[in-house]
Each structure stands twice: as structure tokens, then as C-alpha cells.
Design a protein around this nucleic acid. Structure first.
Lengths: 342, 342
DNA sequence: GATATGAACTAAATCGATTTAGCGAATAAA
DNA sequence: TTTATTCGCTAAATCGATTTAGTTCATATC
């Protein structure tokens, strides 16, 4: 049994295809279709279970009512929550979301943009990879609205971006550690050349300097992106060996690294916060449930998703009519959640 | 700047649209297009950044190279991993996956099927909700392959299903508890009328009976699906009050409930496994990292995803040509991971 | 020299919708 | 009675691809 099309309905109802289209799109009144015909068509459509083909509709109208969401990794709790928020938000505006992960690979990101472009999505929300600026410019040139999320390109502000205030978050966290009397504060971050991570690191340096604490570069630990689980864990455990002597606190700059940190303390049986204080950027179920509970800088994920979506919708509404004036990224404030690990 | 279409390429290259189509689809040789023309077209297409419109292609060919994946909740770790596996697997066969969540709501599930159907996906992988059988039959009638995942309808086997062997998993878990000497074994399960959960519960009863352990119905705790976090937690804490006296072990039948169990032991400071032994169906990061580590029955998520995808692809290949003979659900064996909580 | 064969392309139908322009009948205005 | 309007609906173009059935030359065959 084949799917029913608009012409099947037209034939069965004894009217033209156009009439069916008008009725299905609530333009019947405007086109002064008579009450009887409207009812006839609606009945036939219901009986036959007619569902308009969105490919045909999209082809004709140039709108698919779909937006493409590109994140780094959808199985990461942060991005999963973000995706869910965006999807819920999109539904309010009657848009559907298609999402996919880059794994922070430029090549993969380009492929995904390609794929979404071929599928004619109406707009994009993108967590960019380092070299993606060119590709995103092309989308703008094609008049497709784009909103960056979680990351941004400081050198070009033609594209709106929504993210947490990374600098403020890490500054607040570092201040908190300093305020609690810690001086030998180690940092664990992931290798990433992008601005949002530089902002985080910069905040750390600035706060130490502000308090006249000498910066010890051996305390700045950068985990290679492709190190793999075991190697990364090892690097953290090596750092932890100095607990109580060369370091007294560790600030993890990402969620993923913080979880590895927990594995490390578990493996090494380090007393937290006795021997070592712990703080992590970005919350996670585990941090709330672990013993001791882990203090975090919480990102306002829902707010980020909502703001990004609202920005995109705004641009979707008057697409082409006006050019985005360019603006600084929208940076939302994070929240310090003090738990037992400090 | 508008997007480039096939006719733009044709015009610029000075050939017909058909010729461009043949070149782009590697049918140039078969259609004996000359080497020069092929190169000309390829160059023009590359220069202009041509990317075929998949809506048009899908409309014409009737194939979108897309499959719809419907899960219960994409932000749940089990389904997130499953989705990732299926996506990776799909890519091998050159298919793209669109996924969405039902929240176990029949109405929502029907809407999602509708939406995917309108978008002309080629096939479906569905975690069904209780009343979804009719809707799925319609898809079959339209000649769209469907594979059920994680759950199934015992009363109709016309649709292939791939899932863990729930009965065996819970049987093995219960046997393990009994073998360790526990006799007052409580069960915590979620309210769900579907076969896979009934299978889990049935296994519990069967094993107790096999060991001549009297079943105490007060030990069987069913958490209402829409109870909400706090109420569910309360129900588990109420159960835990009997630790050491009326109960000596608790078997959580889902991941989500197990995590609540951890919150409960944390809140109540219960010694595990001293006062109470814990076992959970379906693994989770937290279970591996918590102190004590929690023993689990691990589902073979990757295998389930792969098998489901392979089954779907098989049906996609000869769509329409033959009817699925009908078969029992494919049930894959889970693995008991013994940790410290028993 | 007429005809058949083959090489290298192209025209046009098609998929299923939307949308503009227009047609015939009924009614109103002149 | 003729002309203009309004009503209620339809024909046909269009979106951007794929695909079948030709068409036009050039060459080979008899």
C-alpha cells in the first residue's frame, strides 16, 4: 500500500489539488472555498490518513521548519542537556531539531554542515571547531542564520554567539579557592586553542596575579585532546602525587576532566578536602552524589539554550531583510555551587 | 546569494541538466559521457560549491537515506549510548539518523512517528510505548521497515525486535543474591505494563520460588512513572528504613532507580553492603565510581544497537520484495558485573 | 549511396506539494 | 439588456533533482 498524496485526496473528494492544498493550509476561507467543500476535503483527508510530504513542501516553499544543531559530543551530559533544552524550545516555535556531534574535529564539522545544508535546514546552532569560521561565513552568505553556542571566534563578531561567561566563572572559582586560604592551586584543562578555554585560563592567571601569588607553570596541566582515557587519568594521578606538599587544590576546567579526577582520587585514596581541595567547571550528577560532594561552577545551560534559540528565531523571522549588525558574544553568568570538596 | 542548483551548473558548464546529474551520480560512464565533459562538469561543480538538494532528490527517488530513531529519553545514559552506537553504525551504511524521545507517552510517540513519516524517513528503529502497536502496523502497511528496540509486543511478532534478555538478566542477578545468602530481597521497579518489565519481575518470582523462598509482596516496590524525583526518592528511602531487619538486599530494575538508590543511601548513611546489599539492572558511570562501587547487570548496548541496525538494513535492502516471516524477539545476553555493593 | 550501429548527449516526464493567475457562473450595477 | 463584480474553484508553473526515451551526428556495413 502506497502513501496517500494530495492528488489522491483531490480525486477522492472530487476537487482539484489546489483546493485540497488550501484546505489543508487553512487558506480555505481566504480563497473562499465553500463550507461543504472544506468539510468534504477534511473528511476524506482524515479517512485516508493523509499526511503532507514535507520533502515536496520544503522543496516548493524553501522552508523545512528544521534547524540543525551541531555540538561537540551529544553523549556528554552538558551537551545532552543543552540539546534537550534547545529541542523543547524549538518545539514552541514549531521547529524540529536535527542534532549531530563533531568530536571537535574540523573535518567532521564541515561534513555535518554539508549534510545539514543538503537537507535544507532553515538555520543552524553550532558549537564551532577551531577552523570552522570560513565554513560558517559561507552559510551566512547563503542567507542561512547561524548562532554559535558554547564557543566563539573573537576575531569576527558578525555571527551571534551565546555562552557562559568563562572568564567570570573561573575567576570566581579561583577567588573562592584563594579566599579559603589555598595558594598552591593546580589547574587541569584540556588542550584547546579556542577563545573560551583561553578565557578560562586567563582568569586563573589574573586572579593569582591580583593576589600576588607567584604562578608556577608546573601547576598548569594541559591534557591532550586525543590522549585517551587511560593516559589522561595517569596524567591526573601524577599530578595528585603532590597532594598536600606541592599542591593543595585542583581546579578542573571541564566536566569530563573532573570525572577523571574522581577516578583518580578513588584509585589513590586521597582525602578530599583534607589533603586536597577540588573544584570543577560545569556540574554533573556524579559531583552531587559522590562522597565528598564536589564543588562546581555551574553553567546556566537552560538559559544558554533558550537565549540561543531566541536569537536564532529572531534572525529566522526576518531572514535576508536585514544584516546582523555584529555584536559581542552574549555571555551568561555561571553560579558557584559550594559543596564539600573545598 | 542563493544556493547553486543543478541547472546553474548545467548552464555554466554548457551542458544539460541530465548530463550534470549523470556525472554527479557516477553514471557518466554508463551513459557514455566523454572524459572532457565529465571533467568540465566536475570542475564547475567544485568551483561553485554545488551540493545536491536532498529534498528534491528524496522527492524524486522516494529514498531519503535517513532513518528515524525513537527512544524513551535521549538524555538517559542508556539511550544516549544506544543512539550513538546506532548513529555510528548507520554511517557505515551511508544512512543518517534523526532521533527523538517519547518520554514513554503514547500520544507523543504517535506525533513523532507522524513527523518522521512526513519527512519520509526510509525506516524506523523504535522503543515502543504501550499502545503503539496499531501505529507501527500502519508503517508496515506503508512498506516502511521497522525494528523495535529495548521493548516488544509479545502478542505480535510480525515486527522484529532486539533487546537484552531481561528474564535472564534478572534471574542471574537474583540467583547471585540468593547465592550470597540473601533471603529478604526487595525489588524496586518502575510502573510499566510492557512485556520487558514483566519479564524482569517474573524472573525474580521464579528464582525465589525455585529456592523455596517465600515471596513477600511488601518487598516488591513499584514506583509510579510520573511520581517525580522527590516522591520516588522518598519511596526508596521508606524502603531502606527496613535495612538489616525486614530486608537485606535491594535489586533496582532500572538505571534511573539505581541512581535514586544512591541518593537514598547517601542521605540515610546506610552501610553498603554491611546493612544492605545493592544490585542494579543496567550500568552507569556513577555505579563504577561511587564508594562502594555498585554491582550491576550490564546490558550489551553496543551489540543491541548493531543488531538492530543490521536487521533494519537487511529489511531496507529488499523492501517490498518479501514479507517478514515473523520471529521471536532477538534477546541478547547481559553480563553480571560484581563490584563491592554485594 | 542507403542503411544500420554506436557514441554522446538532451528533452521531457516525474515526484508532491504551493501559489499565482484566471475561468465560468451567478449576482449586482448601470 | 449589457457590463462589472463577486464567488468558488481550477490550471498550470514551480521548486531541484532523477530517469526514460529519444535525437543528432559520425562511422561502419552491405
Amino acid at each position: 500500500m502506497k502513501k496517500v498524496s494530495i492528488s489522491d485526496i483531490a480525486r477522492k473528494a472530487g476537487v482539484s489539488v489546489s483546493t485540497v492544498s488550501f484546505v489543508m493550509n487553512d487558506k480555505a476561507v481566504k480563497m473562499r472555498i465553500s463550507r461543504e467543500v472544506i468539510e468534504k476535503v477534511e473528511n476524506v483527508a482524515r479517512e485516508m490518513g493523509y499526511r503532507p510530504n514535507q520533502l515536496a513542501r520544503g522543496l516548493r516553499t524553501g522552508k523545512t521548519k528544521t534547524i540543525g544543531l551541531i555540538v561537540e559530543n551529544i553523549s556528554n551530559a552538558f551537551f545532552a542537556t543543552l540539546a534537550k533544552t534547545i529541542e523543547d524550545e524549538a518545539k514552541k516555535y514549531d521547529y524540529k531539531v536535527v542534532y549531530c556531534s563533531t568530536d571537535n574535529d574540523d573535518e567532521k564539522a564541515r561534513d555535518l554542515i554539508n549534510m545539514l545544508s543538503q537537507r535544507q535546514v532553515d538555520g543552524y546552532i553550532i558549537t564551532p571547531t577551531p577552523e570552522l569560521a570560513q565554513e560558517i561565513r559561507k552559510l551566512q552568505a547563503e542567507n542561512k542564520p547561524v548562532v554559535l553556542i558554547d564557543r566563539y571566534f573573537p576575531e569576527f563578531n558578525e555571527i551571534p554567539a551565546v555562552l557562559v561567561d568563562n572568564y567570570e566563572g573561573v575567576a570566581a572559582g579561583t577567588e573562592y579557592l584563594v579566599g579559603k586560604g589555598y595558594r598552591k592551586i593546580a589547574i587541569v584543562t584540556i588542550e584547546n586553542e579556542m577563545a573560551h578555554m583561553k578565557d578560562r585560563l586567563r582568569a586563573y592567571y589574573d586572579v593569582l596575579r591580583r593576589h600576588d601569588i607567584a604562578v608556577d607553570e608546573t601547576l598548569v596541566n594541559i591534557v591532550p585532546y586525543h590522549a585517551g582515557r587511560d593516559k589522561s587519568l595517569q596524567q591526573i594521578q601524577d599530578l595528585f602525587k603532590g597532594a598536600g606538599t606541592s599542591i593543595d587544590a585542583v581546579f578542573f576546567l571541564t566536566n569530563y576532566l573532573g570525572v577523571l579526577g574522581i577516578e583518580a582520587i578513588k584509585n589513590m585514596q586521597i582525602r578530599i578536602p583534607g589533603q586536597l581541595a577540588l573544584l570543577c567547571f560545569d556540574d554533573n550528577d556524579i559531583f552531587r552524589l559522590y562522597t565528598p560532594t564536589i564543588s562546581v561552577i555551574r553553567q546556566p545551560i537552560e538559559a544558554i539554550g533558550q537565549k540561543a534559540m531566541a536569537t536564532l528565531i529572531e534572525r529566522l523571522k526576518h531572514t535576508g531583510s536585514e544584516v546582523y549588525p555584529g555584536a559581542d558574544p552574549i555571555q551568561l553568568l555561571p553560579e558557584l555551587i559550594a559543596r564539600e570538596s573545598i
